[in-house]
């Protein structure tokens, strides 16, 4: 009887700990809601295969290269990403042209899945997600040959 009570106590303590952790923070799918403006496109890591000098190069990506990398992607020319609670995302460019896709989060909320663009599914790694900043990584083998880091700042809370 005493052992049962001890086990029950530990169980309640552990579950209480987990639930209080989750209750004191927003879920990533809630944090994402709202409008995000693109701040920068950078190389997170450069491919060092071409030599050591590569590392001394600037990590920022030019506008032309950015267009080339994102040519086949849903996020092509998108400057503002608006996440809606119904699972829709609006990607708006500088010229005001917008495309609507669907979004969902995978894993523990660290993988952003975008789908609905020409039957393709794209996955982006959410590296950092706070109330005001979002950092997304994705791999590309097109010229850039490295991990691309996109940084966003929140401009409008949903």
């Amino acid at each position: 009887m005493k052992v049962t009570l001890i086990y029950l106590g530990i169980f309640i303590l552990l579950m209480g700990g987990v639930f209080s952790l989750m209750a004191n923070d927003q879920s990533p799918s809630e944090k994402l809601l709202g409008d995000w403006e693109e701040v920068s496109w950078e190389y997170e890591k450069l491919d060092a295969a071409q030599g050591e000098e590569e590392w001394t190069l600037s990590k920022s990506i030019t506008q032309q290269l950015k267009q080339e990398i994102s040519q086949e992607l849903a996020i092509h020319k998108a400057e503002t990403w608006s996440f809606f609670p119904d699972g829709k995302i609006s990607l708006e460019g500088k010229n005001g042209k917008a495309s609507t896709l669907s979004w969902t989060l995978k894993g523990r909320g660290h993988v952003l899945k975008l789908f609905g663009h020409a039957d393709s599914v794209e996955h982006y790694q959410i590296q950092k997600l706070t109330d005001d900043t979002m950092e997304i990584h994705f791999n590309t083998d097109l010229q850039a040959r490295g991990i691309i880091k996109m940084t966003f700042k929140k401009i409008n809370h949903s």
């Binding site: 700990g17 987990v18 989750m22 923070d25 879920s27 990533p28 523990r108 909320g109 660290h110 997600l129």
Partner: peptide, 22 residues
């Protein structure tokens, strides 16, 4: 991952991963 999420202060994700381990 649990350690990483705790270090980053992502308490929701830390809770999720902790519950998976449990």
């Amino acid at each position: 991952v649990l350690a990483e999420e705790i270090a980053k202060g992502n308490w929701y994700q830390a809770g999720v991963v902790a519950s998976w381990i449990l």
